[in-house]
């Protein structure tokens, strides 16, 4: 059996803490897959996954929020049942939900970049509310633009057909999740993260 002579290269404490949070948040996103809150005026069930994509950007910032979303995608790709409806495998990343899934890391990075304005984390409650709203709205538009455009290309749909099938049914749910994220940030119910 081969032996290694090199010494152990320990991971820095701040990296370990942020990395552990990113990994656990990725698992939380996966655990949420089946939880849905029915809305009275929409046929589509609302899953809370996008709320946690918002929170990843808001709480972990642009670097570790993005890392967390990438871990979520990678774990799903190699077989963790983390995608909506307990699906797993590389297939969903190429399938009709692929555009939505690939947009999660970019959305988290976008929110983190707008809210924290750099890699030093700030308390989201101290950020002016319009900035938070702008970040969440931009991320939502990004998620649905990527998701709908990819589905339209993949399934050979026209733009309005893809919007009717993949975006419009979810609009009420998205408004709900943005409201929830804003309430969480505004109410100061989140402990600011210290690296």
């Amino acid at each position: 059996m081969a032996t290694h002579g090199d010494s152990v290269d320990l991971v820095d404490g701040t990296v370990v803490r942020q990395f552990a949070r990113a990994a656990v948040l990725a698992a939380l996103l996966g655990a949420l897959g089946p939880i849905s809150i029915p809305l009275p005026f929409s046929l589509a069930p609302v899953t809370l996954q996008v709320l946690f994509v918002f929170l990843a950007g808001l709480v972990l910032g642009p670097v570790w929020g993005t890392a967390s979303m990438l871990l979520y995608l990678a774990a799903g790709a190699v077989g963790a049942p983390v995608f909506a409806g307990w699906e797993a495998g590389l297939g969903p990343l190429f399938g009709q939900t692929g555009g939505f899934l690939w947009s999660y890391p970019i959305a988290a990075a976008l929110i983190g970049a707008i809210v924290h304005r750099g890699t030093d984390l700030r308390d989201p409650a101290a950020v002016p509310l319009p900035v938070v709203v702008l970040a969440l709205a931009a991320a939502t538009v990004l998620i649905y633009a990527m998701g709908t455009a990819y589905a339209a290309w993949l399934l050979e749909l026209e733009a309005w057909e893809a919007i009717v099938g993949f975006a419009l049914p979810f609009v009420p749910g998205e408004l709900l999740k943005m409201a929830a994220a804003i309430a969480i940030v505004n109410g100061g119910r989140l402990e600011p993260i210290q690296a």
């Binding site: 990395f19 990994a23 990725a26 655990a31 871990l71």
Partner: peptide
């Protein structure tokens, strides 16, 4: 790699 393993464990 470690993160993927942790996601499986914490799910």
């Amino acid at each position: 790699g470690i993160g993927v393993a942790l996601v499986f464990r914490f799910l």
